[in-house]
């Protein structure tokens, strides 16, 4: 439009000027338009600034974690950090072997996924392939409510309800364990896995199912042999995003898994995870700038890198299934 106005013949412009000098209303309106454009620009700038806050948040996260971690790695060598098998950052004889915390994170996440993946997948298949509209309308709010329960309440649930029940089955189970924290964490992730998986399966075109039904397949056969393979990358994405949830979960572990560092692969033992270690340090009163203070940022950076890898992988897989159909 603007280009068109500029290329108007000169006579036209002269005529416009003539009219403007005659009647002030038009020139007034034009000058108001100039103000209008300025206001528009300012508002657009403000809105852009709001959108940019999210980028600033990321920059802030990376800056804080990296800058404090650099101080940390000036005192502790990266090789020790990755290979030491002890984690005692607050003792006189300090050891900084992150593998101790990673083992707790891996075990608790594995327990959680052993619950969340089968349950989430079954619920997703049921809701997408079996349930009628009414059941779905009823089930979705249940799942959303389950996903909305605060993690601290789940922590309470794990420590004071699930652990006593498990101790009746396994009498040797200690009061704090990765097992009960992991199980409850799994329940917490179920809605997440179920809703993402269901989305993926509903994206599978109806014609594939109709083809299978026409050949005489049952619903279950169609679901398992046609829909699930077709939605596979979407399912995988939901599992991977579930892993990233489990790795980043904090309060359930801080409450129910104990917080002592423990290099173990046995879910029946208590152990600290990366997240619960950060909580434990934050509970104490560490002076700003001390090595203990820097440790939580190094742990946080490790956590962020792990979740980032899973998130990127998960999003890549999600985009893949969206492209398929």
């Amino acid at each position: 439009m603007r280009a068109g106005a500029a290329s108007q013949p000169e006579g036209n412009i002269a005529m416009n000027t003539a009219i403007m000098t005659e009647t002030h209303t038009i020139s007034d309106r034009l000058s108001k338009n100039v103000m209008r454009n300025v206001t528009e620009r300012i508002i657009e700038g403000l809105l852009f600034a709001a959108a940019a806050v999210s980028v600033l948040t990321t920059v802030g996260i990376v800056y804080v974690l990296v800058s404090e971690s650099i101080h940390f790695f000036q005192n502790v060598s990266i090789v020790d950090f990755l290979t030491d098998t002890q984690w005692t950052p607050l003792f006189d004889d300090a050891h900084f072997g992150i593998s101790v915390l990673i083992s707790g994170t891996v075990v608790s996440s594995a327990v959680a996924l052993a619950v969340a993946i089968p349950m989430g997948t079954v619920i997703a298949i049921y809701l997408s392939e079996f349930a009628n509209g009414k059941v779905r309308e009823l089930a979705k709010p249940i799942l959303e409510m389950l996903g909305g329960i605060p993690t601290i309440v789940f922590g309470y649930f794990a420590l004071l309800i699930v652990t006593p029940i498990l101790q009746k089955i396994f009498p040797e189970l200690p009061g704090f364990s990765l097992l009960s924290a992991g199980l409850v964490m799994g329940i917490m992730i179920v809605p997440y896995v179920a809703s993402l998986s269901e989305d993926a399966m509903r994206a599978v075109p109806m014609s594939l199912r109709e083809g299978a039904y026409a050949m005489g397949s049952t619903r279950l056969y169609t679901a398992i042999h046609v829909v699930v393979p077709a939605a596979f990358s979407g399912l995988a994405a939901s599992y991977i995003l579930g892993i990233s949830r489990a790795v980043g979960e904090t309060m359930i572990l801080a409450v129910a898994a104990g917080m002592q560092p423990n290099l173990t692969w046995n879910p029946m033992e208590p152990a600290a995870t990366i997240t619960s270690f950060i909580v434990q340090v934050a509970l104490g009163d560490l002076p700003h700038g001390s090595i203990g203070y820097q440790t939580i940022f190094a742990a946080g950076l490790t956590l962020l890198l792990i979740t980032l890898v899973f998130n990127i992988l998960g999003q890549w897989l999600r985009r893949k299934y969206r492209e398929n159909y």
């Binding site: 802030g60 804080v64 974690l65």
Partner: peptide, 18 residues
């Protein structure tokens, strides 16, 4: 999209530093 998946405790560390 990525921020939505950052663990909440990492926001705590951001807040502690900034």
């Amino acid at each position: 999209t990525n921020l939505a998946a950052v663990p909440s405790i990492v926001y705590g560390l951001l807040a502690l530093g900034i």
